[in-house]
Simulated scan of single mutants.
Amino acid sequence: MDDTVETKTLIELAKCGVICEALICRHPAKEVEKWMIKIKFGNSEKILRSKREKVRAFHTIDTASKTLRDMGINTCTLDMN
């Protein structure tokens, strides 16, 4: 089963109001500090993917949070571990 979600699907989930939590956390596979977005809805937890990569990596927390806002998700949790 795929553990990622595409941007257009995430926008639709946000419109339907089914997202339980949006989480910005460190990207574990990057040598330099990058961030990724995890989404929890129903019994699922998915990672936002990019068009070319399995995980969409953000250079800054601000960019990740702006992306969530642009998708209609106005609340998120930040995990700096």
Rank of each mutant, 00 (worst) to 15 (best):
T7V: 12
T7C: 08
T7F: 12
K8T: 08
K8P: 03
K8F: 06
K8S: 10
T9C: 04
T9A: 09
T9F: 03
L10V: 04
L10R: 01
I11Y: 05
I11V: 14
I11K: 13
I11G: 00
I11P: 02
E12T: 07
L13H: 08
L13R: 07
L13V: 04
L13G: 00
L13D: 01
A14Y: 06
A14H: 06
A14K: 02
A14I: 08
C16W: 12
C16H: 15
G17A: 11
G17I: 08
V18L: 14
V18G: 13
I19D: 00
I19H: 10
I19L: 11
C20H: 09
A22R: 02
L23G: 03
L23R: 10
L23S: 02
C25A: 07
C25P: 02
R26A: 15
R26P: 00
R26M: 14
H27R: 14
H27G: 04
H27I: 02
H27W: 13
H27D: 15
P28L: 04
P28Y: 10
P28K: 11
P28E: 04
P28F: 07
A29T: 13
A29H: 14
A29S: 14
E31P: 08
V32E: 10
V32K: 13
V32P: 03
E33C: 13
E33M: 13
E33T: 14
W35M: 07
W35Q: 01
M36V: 15
M36C: 11
M36P: 00
M36K: 12
I37V: 13
I37K: 05
I37M: 09
K38A: 12
K38H: 06
I39N: 02
I39R: 01
I39Q: 00
I39A: 04
I39C: 06
K40Y: 08
K40V: 09
K40M: 08
F41L: 10
F41R: 03
F41S: 02
G42W: 07
G42R: 10
G42A: 10
N43H: 14
S44I: 04
E45I: 14
K46G: 01
K46W: 05
K46S: 02
I47Y: 00
I47M: 04
I47F: 08
I47T: 09
L48Y: 05
L48C: 03
L48D: 00
R49D: 01
S50I: 02
S50R: 02
S50E: 06
R52W: 07
R52E: 07
E53R: 15
K54F: 04
V55P: 00
R56I: 00
A57V: 05
F58D: 01
H59C: 08
H59S: 10
T60D: 02
I61K: 09
I61C: 05
D62I: 10
D62S: 07
T63F: 08
A64T: 05
A64M: 05
S65Q: 14
S65L: 12
S65D: 10
K66S: 09
K66R: 09
K66I: 13
K66C: 04
K66Q: 11
T67P: 00
T67K: 10
T67E: 12
L68A: 07
L68G: 03
